[in-house]
Computed example of a mutant assay.
Amino acid sequence: MDATTPMAAMHAAPVSRVRSSRRVADRVLRVSCFAATLIGAVVLGSILLMLIIEGLRGITPTLLTQPTPGPGSEGGGIANAVLGSLVLTFIGIVVATPVGVMAGTFLAEYGRGSKLAELVRFLNDILLSAPSILIGLFVYTLMVRPMGTYSGWAGGVALAIIATPVIVRTTEDMLRLVPGSMREAGAALGAPASTVIRQVTWRAASAGIVTGIILALARIAGETAPLLFTALNNNSWFSPNLMGGIANLPVMIYQFALSPYPNWQQLAWAGALLITATILALSVVARFVLSPKRH
C-alpha cells in the first residue's frame, strides 16, 4: 500500500496555483473586452449601414454630371463639389509632400540628436494634434483677409498644413527603419550623404513614405472645418483662377445635411457615401503598399 501511494500521487491531477480570485478577474476582463468590442462593432456597423442605405437612395444618373441645385430645387447633383474637392486635395498634397518628405529626411538623417531636430519634432507633434479649425482660422488670417475673398488657394494651403505633419512623422519613422549598414555600404563606395539618401535610404523606405502620403491624402479628403474659413462653398462651377467660394464635398455635406430641403439632404447622404468610399479605398491601398510583397 505504501509502495503504490507515491505512484498514485504522481498520477493525481496537478493542483492549480492560481488563486480563484485571479481566475475570476481574468474572466471578468475577458468578458469586458468582448463586450466593448461588440459594442464598438455594433455602433460602427450601424453607422455604416445607415450611410449605405441613405447614400444609395441619393445615387441618381445626374449625381456626378450636374452641379448642386439651388434652395428648394429638385434634381441636380454634386459634380462641382466633387471636382472642387479633387482640386483642393490635389493642391494640399502637392504642397505638403515635398515639405513633409524633406523635413522627415532631415530629422532621420541629418538632425539625429541635435537641438534643432528636437525642436522641429516637438513642433510637428503639436501640429499633428492641433484642431483643424484652428488651422483654418490661421489661414483665414494669413490669406483670406488680406486677399479679401475666399479662394481655393487658401483651402489648399490649409489642407497642406494638416497633411504635412503626417508625412513628416511617417517619413522619419520609415527612414529610421532602414539598417545603418546600408548607409555605411554607400559611404564605403565613396558616395556623398545626399547620394546615399537618394539612391539607398529613400528607395529602401519608398513603400512606407508612399503609405504616409496616401494616409495624409485620406486625412485631408474629409476635412470640413478648415474649408469653412478658406474655400467656403459654391452652388455653381468655380472660377479657373480658384478665387471666390469653391464647392467641395465636406462643406456641401455639412450645409446640405442641416438644410430643411429633402433634395439637399439626399445629396448630402450621397456625398457622404462617396467620400467615405474614397477614404476607405485610400486606406486599403495604403495597407497593400505597406504590406511586404509575398513571392
Rank of each mutant, 00 (worst) to 15 (best):
R287L: 14
S206Y: 03
A36C: 13
A130D: 08
V28E: 03
V99M: 10
R27V: 13
P71M: 00
A160K: 08
T278K: 00
H295M: 09
I220M: 09
P292W: 10
L128C: 03
T4G: 07
V285E: 05
N241V: 09
T68R: 13
I167T: 12
A130W: 00
A257P: 07
G75Q: 05
I279V: 15
S239G: 02
S283P: 00
M174Y: 08
F34D: 14
N241P: 05
V101T: 07
I246H: 10
S194Q: 10
P179I: 00
V289L: 11
L267G: 08
A160M: 15
L134Q: 03
V157S: 08
V120P: 02
M182N: 06
G76S: 08
A216E: 11
W202K: 04
L228I: 15
L258N: 14
L242A: 09
P67Q: 10
L83A: 13
R112W: 00
T65R: 11
A163I: 09
L44Q: 05
P179L: 00
R30I: 13
I161K: 08
I253H: 04
F288L: 15
R23M: 14
G111V: 02
T4H: 09
M182E: 11
Y140F: 15
V285M: 13
T224F: 03
V87P: 02
G77D: 10
A81Y: 14
A204Y: 07
G208Y: 12
M252G: 11
P165S: 13
Q199G: 14
V94Q: 04
T164P: 01
I162Y: 02
A36Q: 10
Q199L: 12
G212Y: 05
D26S: 15
R121C: 08
R203F: 08
P67I: 07
G152N: 01
T201S: 15
F229R: 07
K293N: 12
Y150Q: 03
S46Q: 11
G190W: 13
L267I: 11
G271R: 06
V87F: 02
L86F: 12
L128N: 12
V42Y: 02
F256P: 01
P146V: 05
G40V: 10
E54G: 10
T224G: 05
G72H: 01
K293P: 06
G92T: 07
A187S: 06
P260Y: 02
A193P: 00
P71N: 00
F138I: 11
M243F: 01
V210T: 15
N80V: 11
Q266S: 15
G208V: 09
R176C: 03
T89Y: 00
A9F: 05
G76M: 02
M243N: 13
G70W: 11
